[in-house]
């Protein structure tokens, strides 16, 4: 058997591969494929352990229950408002609750920008709480490596006629380490 592709090793790691026995026989004979499979397994483990930036209602509940209000800063923000979230060694995780009029919204997209308009990230079809009219954005202490502490968040509703802006939020992070 020649070396299988990275896609095949992904399938093996996810338990979705055909011919698993043959793949494992090859793995035990090939140092190159062992290194490849190790790298893919590490990536999958990392993704499985990651906390999403935009939280589903379920994850938000789990976080709230696990940490409690004392160590989990939660900052509500209305459209057009500026707000600050402080994180440090004692408070490593926190989240923003963006209030928005999501009536009739089928799909929300969310764009993260610097205050001067440079795009940092874009999330399409994000989870949101329709009943409460909320989008929960999670922040962690190690996100300080990703960019400047100030961030403009634009949320828009994607509709048949095109995207409709429903809120801009000016978020400032204070990281103490």
């Amino acid at each position: 058997m020649s070396c299988p592709s990275p896609e095949t090793w992904v399938a093996w790691i996810l338990d979705e591969a055909e011919g698993e026995e043959a793949l494992e026989s090859h793995l035990f004979e090939c140092a190159v494929c062992t290194a490849r499979a190790e790298g893919i397994e590490r990536l999958v483990r990392e993704l499985n352990g990651m906390m999403p930036m935009v939280l589903t209602a379920e994850r938000r509940k789990k976080l709230e229950a696990a940490f409690g209000a004392e160590v989990l800063p939660i900052v509500p923000v209305s459209p057009g408002e500026h707000a600050t979230l402080e994180l440090g060694p004692e408070k490593r995780v926190g989240f923003w609750v963006l209030h928005a009029d999501v009536h009739g919204a089928e799909r929300l997209d969310c764009e993260l920008l610097t205050f001067d308009g440079q795009r940092l990230a874009n999330f399409t079809d994000i989870p949101f709480d329709r009943e409460r009219g909320e989008v929960a954005l999670c922040c962690q202490l190690h996100y300080r490596e990703l960019g400047p502490p100030e961030m403009l968040v634009r949320v828009s509703s994607v509709e048949a006629a095109g995207p409709r802006p429903i809120g801009e939020y000016w978020l400032n992070h204070v990281f103490t380490v």
Binding site: N48, R59, K62, H142
Partner: peptide
């Protein structure tokens, strides 16, 4: 649950 804890040491550069 493990997934609600912040990662202590990441295996991959975040």
């Amino acid at each position: 649950a493990e997934d609600v804890l912040p990662p202590a040491a990441s295996a991959i550069d975040f």
